[in-house]
């Protein structure tokens, strides 16, 4: 990085540490924190959207949409997350490649399934083997992101449909009494009022989402866990910066990162809850008097 770092073996302890912490690999490590934050920033709203759409789906008058939404919301509850995370990106990957294969390599006669192997033509590979490294990384990240959104979307759907059921019937019925259509009741009463019931569940999900981000590592994305292992492992004198096994320090760093994340989140979420519950103080009391 710096000129002084040219020959690490000659450095004093102070500069050695500076130079060590500014190697290209360490920068990759720092960037991987952003990867985690970006994942959170996209996966959270996306899951909420999936969950919301599924919740609307469960109330659909269309039989197929209703069954589909209900099974989506309930399915993931019975499946261990990790299995799902391994399954979705792989399935999506093969699905995309299969489609590309059918379109691009329609003239190839060999079957795609050769024994238990999944083989598509070279041109159908995703990403192409000639593509840059960052394309491969972005592709892996995107697949992981979709997996997160699907799994957490189902959890969110569960929370949201429960929250919708919690909205007092007298509130929606009063809308009906004033001539609201079903649609107006849904958008003007049910949706604005459900958040107060949804926030505890969604807060919980957000914490789970934060804690699930190391699954990225499992999906081949070079995330913070990957780099902590990579950089922390002991380095022989073959390396520019030889050191013994420092993984424990690196993982301690991750621990602090996750603690900070959850601590900050709980502060923000608590504020949100207070803001939303403004004016709803006697809701429980009203419920008791119910019409």
């Amino acid at each position: 990085m710096f000129n002084v770092c040219a020959d690490p073996s000659t450095l004093t302890e102070f500069f050695w540490v500076i130079c060590y912490l500014t190697t290209a690999k360490h920068f990759a490590f720092y960037v991987s924190f952003f990867v985690v934050l970006v994942l959170l920033a996209i996966a959270a709203p996306l899951s909420l959207l999936f969950g919301f759409i599924a919740t609307i789906g469960t109330r659909s008058s269309n039989w197929f949409i209703q069954i589909f939404s209900k099974s989506y919301i309930n399915m993931v509850r019975g499946i261990p997350d990790v299995v799902f995370f391994l399954f979705v990106p792989l399935a999506l990957d093969q699905f995309f490649e299969l489609i590309r294969h059918k379109i691009i390599c329609f003239d190839v006669v060999e079957p795609i399934w050769q024994g238990t192997d999944f083989v598509v033509c070279k041109a159908a590979k995703l990403p192409l083997s000639t593509a840059d490294l960052w394309v491969h990384q972005l592709y892996a990240f995107t697949l992981a992101l979709i997996a997160f959104a699907i799994v957490f979307g189902a959890f969110a759907g569960n929370v949201l449909s429960g929250a919708m059921r919690s909205v007092s019937k007298t509130q929606t019925e009063t809308g009906a009494a004033f001539g609201f259509t079903q649609k107006q009741i849904f958008w003007r009463i049910l949706v604005p009022q459900m958040w107060i019931y949804a926030i505890p569940g969604l807060s919980n999900l957000w914490m789970l989402l934060i804690k699930a981000t190391p699954l990225l590592f499992l999906l081949g994305v070079e995330d913070i866990v990957y780099w902590a292992r990579e950089l922390g492992g002991s380095k022989t004198s073959m390396y520019a910066y030889p050191h013994p096994d420092w993984r424990v320090y690196y993982f301690a760093g991750l621990l602090v990162f996750y603690l900070l994340m959850t601590w900050a989140s709980s502060k923000v979420l608590k504020r949100l809850q207070i803001k939303l519950s403004k004016g709803q103080a006697t809701m429980a009391g009203k419920e008791l008097q119910g019409y």
């Binding site: 007298t170 009494a177 604005p192 004016g279």
Partner: peptide, 25 residues
């Protein structure tokens, strides 16, 4: 309708409660 337990919409201010139905419906 005027209900026994009032049934004001709890997510709206008093003014918005009065405005809501005429505007929406």
């Amino acid at each position: 309708m005027v209900f026994q337990s009032f049934n004001l919409w709890s997510h709206l201010s008093i003014l918005d409660n009065v405005i809501e139905a005429p505007v929406t419906v």
